[in-house]
Design a protein around this nucleic acid. Structure first.
Length: 588
RNA sequence: GCCGACGUAGCUCAACUGGUAGAGCAAUUCUUUCGUAAAGAAUAGGUCGUCAGUUCGAAUCUGACCGUCGGCUCCA
């Protein structure tokens, strides 16, 4: 049996065994589903009583008992009627069976006195399961069938492997990952903070964090202008009518901050900048010669996300999106612009040292023709738009997954997905095809034949939301930002009082070369100051004493390296300037 | 928003079953002016997230609220 199949059978069997243990503790439990997932399994239960993390060790013990009894798994097959009769007291199972095609054979797996609707496969018996290679990790609420209108079940998660070593390696990996968590590093490096009084999900950037953000902003604005984008500014608020006109309002109103009422008008903090850009486009008649018109903005957006969704800088209520709307003349142009946007995204990823496949992946997020509530109804337009995006990805020869029911209401999109340090996936960047807004905003242009034509819009983010991308980058680099993004690039440490004046002068030399420098002239020992500098993840640390005052040689402590780098001052400055300008990933 | 856990000084954490708070680092001051990952001393700093309640007495028990975390839903 291939390794993956074997471990899946173990994990799946463990989910049944967990259900057995839960039923033993709470006989009145109703069963949901219990599938395998990455590294483990879960099972959803409707419990008659509360369950918390502290109950897990006891459940584990019970499971080990079941495993040691060499419990066998046996498959039985029946028709739908028999199956429904068998599970008549299990409401959730009844629902599952009712959704299966009438003709289909339905399989159950029996283990001991437990029986569960299940396609399998499972282990032959529990002797195939190492009782020391699994662990129940946590309890969480989960809606039945993932729908928040359904009752909330109690989900118990577990991790499982073939042997104890693999389990321990996995747990150790999780511990290591926690050290890279951007929330932890952000606090340690003093990059950003939150205040209860300002409000949750509203980050406050310190000067250091703001430096990282400013560098990213400069980087992206310059790059976009090079690529033919026009950078604009539009206000953070607008009348509610704008979002009614765009059609965002009904789809979006739950995640918008409540209207601000002034005199007889209502204003909204904007959750997106598209309608502003469309109004800007329409402010003057446009010709086909103006297209494609790439309107970009570092747009501050406000979304009233559900409180439980907020998470550090990954998910906030106020964020700055490197946003753009590309008004295209026709499908062919739209296709080119999607490709161009993806090229920019890959350029940015490359600059960050992020690799396709390893650090990010493509997802083609599709609509759902059955769901007229969530998606604008125009089957033909959807088919065409999805096809355009699919074609672009294929031309790029990139692997991608197709995700049904993940599109925007106005069209399908290509999402660039990244995983955070704990393995949770988020959309980092996005390119969206829009066939709805041109209609709503009457986005038109005059073509060659002096005829009025409707445009197509591409929405795209380049570096995405700065908050989120910085969170990803902090985790990717473990806080060791490349030189160009480091809040302070060079730290100068004085040996004694006599070296302060010289050090400050040296700092000025760096400063005039636009190198971010700090002098630590505190009355601490050199060793202590070096330690602090290292903890700040300082790229370069210079100690200045009598030796340096007498020559142009510097002894540079390079982040992450044991040996000192002896280098001429002029050469050092010129080298790090180049490093910064080229946005190099490695230090000298 | 929902399920569960958590919330003690700027940070990391301690305080037995209720008897009203303590350490290290950071900060301030003084001494030391030091050569590549922690000099020494002193001082200051907390209505124990907030507000109620139970109790002779609450950081500790109960409730509500606020916030954080892990999930669900959602999403850049």
């Amino acid at each position: 049996m291939p390794k993956q199949e074997k471990i899946d059978a173990i994990r799946h069997s463990l989910s049944h065994i967990m259900a057995m243990a839960v039923l033993k503790k709470f006989p009145d439990t109703k069963l949901g589903i219990g599938p395998t997932i990455d590294n483990g399994f879960y099972y959803d239960f409707l419990l008659p009583d509360k369950l918390s993390d502290t109950d897990l060790p006891r459940l584990e013990k019970q499971m080990k008992k079941i495993i040691q009894q060499k419990t066998a798994f046996t498959k039985t097959v029946m028709d739908k009627k028999q199956a429904l009769d068998k599970v008549k007291d299990e409401d959730f199972k009844v629902e599952l069976i009712n959704d299966l095609p009438a003709a289909e054979e339905i399989s159950f797996y029996e283990s001991g006195d437990f029986s569960d609707l299940c396609a399998g496969p499972h282990v032959k018996d529990t002797s195939e399961i190492n009782p020391h290679a699994f662990k129940l990790t946590h309890v969480a609420g989960a809606y039945w069938r993932g729908d928040e209108k359904n009752p909330m079940l109690t989900r118990i998660y577990g991790v499982a492997f073939e042997n104890k070593e693999e389990l321990e390696a996995h747990l150790e990996m999780l511990e290591q990952a926690k050290l890279r968590d951007h929330r932890k590093i952000g606090k340690e490096l003093d990059l950003f903070t939150f205040s209860d009084v300002v409000g949750k999900g509203l980050p406050l950037w310190t000067a250091k964090g703001a430096t990282i953000r400013r560098e990213l902003e400069n980087f992206i604005v310059d790059e976009e202008i090079k690529r033919g984008y026009q950078h604009v500014y539009t206000p953070d608020i607008a009348k509610i009518d704008l979002y009614k006109k765009s059609g965002h309002y009904p789809y979006y109103k739950d995640s918008m901050y409540a209207p601000i009422k002034i005199d007889d008008e209502e204003f909204m903090l904007r959750p997106m900048s598209c309608p502003h850009h469309f109004e800007l486009y329409s402010s003057k008649p446009k010709s086909y010669r103006d297209l494609p018109m790439r309107i970009a903005e570092l747009a501050k957006l406000y979304r009233y996300e559900q409180s439980g969704e907020l998470s550090g800088l990954m998910r906030v209520r106020s964020f700055c999106l490197a946003d753009a709307h590309i008004i295209c003349a026709d499908v062919e142009q739209a296709k080119q612009e999607v490709a161009g946007a993806l090229d920019l995204i890959e350029y940015i990823s490359d600059t960050f040292g992020l690799k396709f496949g390893q650090d990010f992946s493509y997802r083609l997020s599709l609509g759902n023709r059955q769901d007229d509530k969530k998606y604008y109804k125009d089957d033909k337009a959807w088919d065409q738009a999805e096809d355009v995006l699919r074609q672009v990805l294929k031309n790029m020869k990139r692997d991608f997954v197709e995700a049904p029911d993940e599109a925007s209401f106005y069209g399908p999109k290509i999402d660039i997905q990244m995983k955070n340090v704990m393995g949770k996936e988020d959309t980092a960047f996005t390119v969206q095809y829009d066939f709805v807004m041109p209609e709503r905003f009457n986005l038109i242009y005059t073509d060659k034949n002096n005829k009025e034509k409707k445009a197509i819009v591409i929405h795209r983010s380049s570096v995405g939301a700065l908050e989120r991308v910085i969170a990803f980058l902090i985790e990717h680099y473990s806080g060791n930002m490349p030189l160009w993004l480091s809040p302070t690039q060079v730290k100068i440490i004085t040996v004694g009082e006599g070296h302060i004046k010289f050090s400050k002068k040296l700092a000025e030399e760096f400063q005039t070369q636009s190198i971010r420098v700090e002098v630590d002239d505190s009355a601490e020992t050199v060793g202590n100051k070096i330690r602090k500098s290292a903890k700040e993840k300082m790229p370069y640390t210079l100690v200045i004493g009598d030796k340096e005052m007498g020559s142009d040689q510097l002894a540079v402590r390079v982040r992450g390296k044991q040996d000192l780098l002896n280098i001429d001052k002029k050469e050092f400055i010129s080298k790090i300037k180049t490093n910064i300008q080229n946005r190099e990933l490695e230090l000298l």
